[in-house]
Design a binder for these strands. Structure first.
Lengths: 348, 348
DNA sequence: TTGTAGGCGTTATCAT
DNA sequence: ATGATAACGCCTACAA
């Protein structure tokens, strides 16, 4: 049984309280907050004083209910655990903030089913528009978004063939270019550490890029040594260890992102395998630690901040009903550092 | 002028729509969603079918308005940019999720004034309870929280003298222990790279810990070379560079966290300064890259995941009105790695 | 410039 | 077990 508390009610002040305190109507209070210039200086001051006095803050739910606009956007990213999305999201948020919209962030753990729930949740919470990563999601998710006509921008990808509006880069072409450079250095036993490709089009595209390059150079993509594991430093380390146990042993490991690559680098050091002397390792993303780690990581630079900023522009334009904005493709480039070297002279 | 659109309305389905489709009252629909056992099997199936059919999702704002409970907690962390808070927050979120509450995250950029806004925002959005970092905030923030009787837990700190409930560790004692170990290795010219201490009690406490240890060993805390800069790898690098230009030059640099320390390490490498041969460097937090970087970083291990998990337990208990939970202190320990060595033999 | 009043979508209290 | 109906806090025509 619950004991009756004799404390006075915590009651949040409402427009009505403010109105009473300032001796005006609730409508005037509302105007002071939403259209300050439609109210006389004198009464506005009186109202704002009451607002401060009472510590009034408008109830978001009630406001959304009545106004049908929240000035809130949502973003669903696969993970907050590592830095992959942090910088882009930060830029996204900053750009939104400058336009008076606040951001709600959710993470899906790379699971389309969870993402579907999150989409519903964010929309129910009143998100006016959504930022999503990639194109891989459940049909139900897309059906929902279309039925509700929620403005959506897809980031981290660019597929000119898709009608959906996106801001990103060509993952496949970028990885293909890197794979070509690796092979140009004499490597012909390649390995790859990738995230699960199911439900992750970025991972799938990057993987495909490697196969493309191999085929173009007359190598059989089937000879590619593949390890699939979730993005994390320890996972990268384990996958690398398994790759080194293969026969024949690969001389170059292309990693699906920098996080995996850093893990691989660590494992190599522990195993006493020289990088890039015995094995070359490459990453993808160019996050901060790619430059810090030793040997520093040759990787694909992705313009995260610009991507985030322009995602905000696109989404704002969409929400405002401006002339339909176009998908944009951002350039990536290879950053040459120390983890990639020529193939070792002593082939098996 | 806005062109009239001839599209059919995007209208989100409401309980009413569902009720009509299932030929029941709105009350029954509501019960199906919130107390499924209080409705007969047959009608429940019919209702749920309609729900799926229409893609119905309850409007969060309306629900909060009517039910006065959102099952949503809020967390305000200083930054999402680096990994300091990521792991703890992840654990926090997981624990909440298992209890059916969803988490809203905001970041304050280490600015109490912004944090005050965020607190208001989260509460207005219906947060039932809040997780905050540290004890440093505006009086207005505390006044607001008390007036509204919002359950709050303070993480990343533990001050037995404070009446506020917290889950964390003694930043001052932890850093003091580390400083003692550094001096025990012969270092008597110390430098520190800290975040701004104003408005950041963790930074202030850690700093104070160093001074404590120096005083206890008969060193004048005024001789400590201090660099204050926001947490980031490049900032750590720059601060380190400035420290190395001082006369006399410190032989050991204690960093306020691992992020700064990693930056310092990078700068040392670029400057050709041997670590730990010429200078020792220490961190704080024990985030992933502390182990990866070279030389690996001697640092203070903080049990982030446990802290997050137990923060959730505390907050849940508070919200549920269980017997007033107690603040908890978590142990930290020094992780011995390679960046700390004996003081160089050639004193100035 | 200001006030009045209806409605936004949901839950909860009472009946039935 | 189910149905009517009154809040919940705010915004916005519409009137004055």
């Amino acid at each position: 049984m619950q004991i009756r508390r004799e404390e006075k009610a915590p009651a949040a002040p409402t427009v009505e309280d403010v109105a009473r305190a300032a001796d005006v109507s609730t409508a005037t209070v509302s105007r002071c907050l939403n259209a300050p210039d439609r109210v006389s200086e004198r009464t506005r001051e009186r109202v704002m004083a009451a607002v401060r006095e009472l510590g009034y803050a408008p109830n978001f739910g009630a406001r959304a209910l009545a106004a049908k606009r929240t000035n809130t956007f949502g973003a669903i990213i696969p993970t907050m655990e590592n830095a992959i999305f942090a910088r882009g999201l930060q830029a996204f948020q900053e750009a939104l903030g400058q336009n008076g919209v606040t951001l709600l962030v959710a993470s899906s753990s790379y699971r389309p089913d969870l993402e579907e729930d999150q989409i519903r949740e964010l929309v129910a919470r009143g998100a006016d528009a959504l930022l999503l990563i990639g194109h891989d999601r459940t049909p139900a998710s897309y059906a929902f978004l279309e039925q509700r006509r929620i403005p959506v921008v897809h980031a981290w990808v660019h597929d000119p063939a898709s009608p959906r509006i996106s801001i990103g880069f060509d993952n496949r072409a970028a990885m293909k270019a890197l794979a070509h450079e690796v092979m140009a250095r004499g490597h012909d036993r390649l390995g790859v550490i990738t995230a699960a490709r199911e439900g992750n089009d970025r991972a799938r595209e990057r993987f495909a890029g490697i196969c493309d390059a191999m085929a173009e150079r007359g190598l059989d993509p089937a000879s590619l040594a593949v390890e699939e594991t979730p993005y994390s430093i320890p996972n990268g380390a384990e996958a690398f260890t398994r790759l080194m146990a293969r026969d024949p042993r690969p001389t170059a490991i292309l990693c699906g992102n920098d996080v995996l690559a850093v893990g691989a680098l660590g494992a190599a050091r522990k195993m006493g395998i020289d990088v890039p002397g015995s094995v070359s390792i490459t990453g993808f993303d160019d996050i901060e630690i790619a430059e810090i780690v030793q040997p520093s990581l040759t990787t694909v630079h992705v313009p995260h901040r610009e991507m985030g900023r322009r995602a905000a522009e696109l989404l704002l334009a969409l929400r405002n009903g401006d002339a339909a904005p176009q998908s944009v493709a951002l350039p990536t480039h290879i950053v040459w550092r120390d983890s990639l070297g020529p193939a070792p002279k002593t082939p098996a």
